[in-house]
């Protein structure tokens, strides 16, 4: 698997979108070099604004822009959206404004350590009437095109770096609801068929989960893998269909248990088709280290997930 930078994909795509949508305005909070918005800034300087180290003001400014007909993309690290959560709630989400929030550096950031790991962002956004997307690098461009067309307040979680699966995503558009308003989303899709256990994941964990299915195969476990890029609105159809076959669910996410993909999926599953369920997620407070070491330390490396699932299936 090759390492790619999803932020660069975002940077290139937002510049293309800027051409297509003259109403797009990009906002940064002094992290433009990391959120990779440089190309947009160069091509559309009048529609780019660096708000400085001021996330709260950036979110409020985005709200004012959206009210007056613009389509703002407010970009910062996933961890720092929490600093402006109440601004996102009051000024953006509760007004149903067409603001896209880009949180780069979701999940582990590596050596910068605990102050910078974005491990709660999905949870705090999921509590709001907002679209929440955690795309893999393969899905990212499609997600950005779709969210540009959709008019709901949206959070898009990106990663600092990502493994590339080189699997063409199966893009089918669905229509759900956010706070009573229609919302477009990309439907969950199967990456690998299997009959013993259903794995669901998203973001950059998807590539690890894909490797995991191969490893589990060596143990004689035939795992099915489903990608769920949209945590909200959550389309449960494919997961329930898969569980009717496998009867077992494993959720895999680079996020804390509270409020993440696992809770979202298992709460629907427990209502509609209860099965034996296992969640793999970040627990404890994780400090500095190489990302590969952090995955292993927190139980999210492929070998550790493989052991965990194997033991759980044998129980």
């Amino acid at each position: 698997m090759e390492k790619v930078n999803p932020r660069k994909v975002f940077g290139k795509t937002i510049a293309k979108l800027g051409e297509m949508y003259p109403e797009i305005v990009v906002l940064d909070a002094d992290l433009g070099s990391s959120t990779c918005t440089g190309e947009f800034k160069k091509r559309f300087p009048e529609r780019y604004k660096d708000c400085g180290v001021s996330e709260q003001d950036m979110m409020g400014t985005a709200a004012g822009l959206a009210i007056t007909g613009k389509k703002p993309y407010a970009c910062t690290f996933a961890i720092f959206i929490g600093r402006a959560w109440e601004q996102i709630r009051q000024s953006i989400a509760y007004q149903g404004l067409d603001v896209k929030i880009i949180g780069t550096h979701g999940g582990f950031v590596g050596e910068d350590g605990k102050s910078h790991h974005g491990t709660e962002d999905v949870g705090i956004i999921r509590t709001l009437p907002m679209v929440c997307v955690v795309p893999s690098v393969e899905e990212l461009e499609e997600v950005l095109y779709l969210t540009a067309e959709d008019k709901n307040p949206t959070y898009i979680r990106l990663f600092r770096q990502s493994d590339e699966m080189k699997i063409k995503p199966e893009i089918k558009i669905g229509r759900g609801f956010i706070n009573g308003k229609g919302a477009w989303y990309i439907k969950p899709y199967r990456i690998k068929e299997g009959r013993d256990v259903t794995l669901v994941s998203n973001g950059r964990m998807l590539s690890k989960a894909f490797n995991l299915t191969k490893e589990l195969g060596l143990y004689g476990i035939d795992a099915e893998l489903i990608s769920i890029p949209y945590v909200k609105p959550l389309d449960d159809e494919l997961v329930i269909e898969s569980l009717k076959k496998t009867g077992k669910l494993v959720t895999i996410e680079e996020h804390r248990k509270e409020g993440g993909l696992g809770e979202a999926v298992s709460s629907v599953v427990s209502e509609k088709y209860p099965v034996k369920t296992k969640g793999l997620y970040i627990s404890g407070i994780i400090g500095s280290g190489k990302c590969s070491e952090l995955y292993d330390f927190s139980g999210l490396s492929v070998p550790r997930m493989k052991e965990e699932i194997y033991r759980w299936l044998k129980d």
């Binding site: 604004k49 003001d57 409020g60 004012g64 959206a66 007056t68 007909g69 613009k70 601004q87 000024s91």
Partner: peptide, 16 residues
């Protein structure tokens, strides 16, 4: 405290 930023965003929009 949030209205100042919102108003600022509106003013920026009119300037653009």
């Amino acid at each position: 405290g949030q209205g100042v930023s919102i108003g600022k965003g509106m003013a920026l929009s009119f300037k653009i």
